[in-house]
Design a protein around this nucleic acid. Sequence first.
RNA 1: GGGUCGGUGGGCGAGCGGUCAAAACCACCAGACUGUAAAUCUGGCGCCGUAAUGGCUACGGAGGUUCGAAUCCUCCCCGGCCCA
Length: 406
Amino acid sequence: MAMVETSEAALATLLNRGVVDAVVRTDLERMLQAGKPLRIKFGVDPSRPDLHLGHAVGFRKIRQFQELGHHVIIIIGDWTARIGDPSGRSDTRQMLSAAEVHANAQTYLDQMGKIVDVDKIEVAWQTSWFEDFTLEDVVRLCAKYTVNRMLDRADFSTRYGGGQAVSVVEFLYPLLQAYDSVAIEADVELGGTDQYFNFQVARDIMPAHGLQPQQFLTWPLLVGTDGTRKMSKSYDNYVAITDEPNDMYGKVMSLSDEVMRDYFETLTDIPAPVLDEMFGEMEAERRNPRDVKAHLAREIVTQFHDEASAHAAEAEFVRMFRQGALPSDIPIIALDDALRSANTIVDALIAANLAKSRSEARRLVQQGGVRLDNTRITDTNTPYTAQPGQIFQVGKRRFGEVSEGS
RNA sequence: GGGUCGGUGGGCGAGCGGUCAAAACCACCAGACUGUAAAUCUGGCGCCGUAAUGGCUACGGAGGUUCGAAUCCUCCCCGGCCCA
C-alpha cells in the first residue's frame, strides 16, 4: 500500500488554499489524517473538451490529492451528457455519438495531463454501470429522494417560484450523478463550487446503499480575463490550457488587476506570505502592478509549457507592447496572383487576408491602423505594388511579411 | 385544441407606415494615452463604393396593401406563458 502523506502543513494547504467549502470538514480532516489512501472522485463532462485555466484550478487541487498519495478516479459522464443540461439553459444539448464522447474524453485527459499524473488515475465510464440500469433501478433511485430536497437547490426553487419550467429530467441529473459516487464507492468528491448541491445529494443517497456518505471539497470558479464573469468559452474571456506561450502570456497580462490575487492563489504554488508581501508592496506603490502581473504570467506559462518559453514570451511581449517593435516571428503573406494584382492598399489588405471586406479594410486605413514597412497609411487610395519583404502591420497585433515562398 | 405575447444586427433589446442599415447597452475593431493586450478617453462596427445627403441587400418565411413596410393584412414556420 502506498505511503500517504499526513503532515499538518500539507493538509492545511489542501483544505484551505483555493477552496470554497470542505464538507464535512472535521470528518474529512480525520480521514486524511488516518493515513489510508482515499478514493477521490472527480466527474468530467465529455461534451465540451475545450479546457481553460478555470479547469486548471481544479486539476491543481486534484494533483495535491495525488501528491499526498490518494487514489483519484475520474468519471467520464458519458451517460448523463446525453440527458441534457441541468442548469436550466433551454438549449437542448446535442446527442453525442459514442465515438465523439470517446475522442472528447481522450482530449480532456491529454490536457489534464499537463497538471495531473494521468497514469496514476483510474478512469471510469458512467455507461459501465448505467447501461444495465433498468426502469426499476431508476424508480428505486428516485424513491430515495424527495422533491422537497430537490427544491432546496436555489436554481430550482427560484425558477419554480417564478413560474418557470423545471423539467423532471433536471431532477434526475443530480440523482444519477450521485449514483456515480455509489458505483465507485467514493470517499471524497471534488469539483467546482457550482457542484455543491449535487455532491450533497450523493451524501444523502449513499447510506441507503450501505456506504458512508462521501465528503467533498469545492473550489472557486475562476473569474475570466474580463474581471467580472466566470471564465468560460462562451464569454470569450478564457485562457486555454493549450494556448501557445505568447498567447497565454499576453492573455494573462490583459487580466484586470483586481483578480490577480485569485489567480496567484488558485494557479500557483507561491506561498501565502510571499504573496502578502508582494501585494503589500504593490498597494504601497513601491511595486508596479504590471510587474506583479508579469510574474503571474511567467508562472502560468511555465506550468503549461516550460520556463524557457515563459521567458521568451515575456521578452516578446516587452518588445511588441512596451517598445512597439516588430515581433520576432512574423507570419508570411504569400506573394500570389491576388496580391500581385492589388493596386491599392485596400486591395492589398484583402489579398493578404488582413481584412474581411473592403469596407473593413477602408475603415482600418482611415482610422490609422495600417502600416506598410512601418509607415502609416491613411489614404485608402494609396497605390500599392507587391514586393517581397514588405511588412504589413494592422492594429497592434497583426503582422505579415510578403514572401515569394509558397 | 383554445387564448395570448413574441420572433429585429455577434449578444441583449428599442423601433411599430416615410427622417431606419435600424436606439441604448455589451462584445468586438482602430486610435490616443499609459503601468500591460489593464483602466480611461475618442472613433468605428451589413456589403459595394466615394468629393457623396450614393447604390445594394437586410428586421423568422412566402405572398399582399401602399407612391413608400422592420412597422399594416393573409397564410405558414418557430418559441414563451395561460386555459383545456
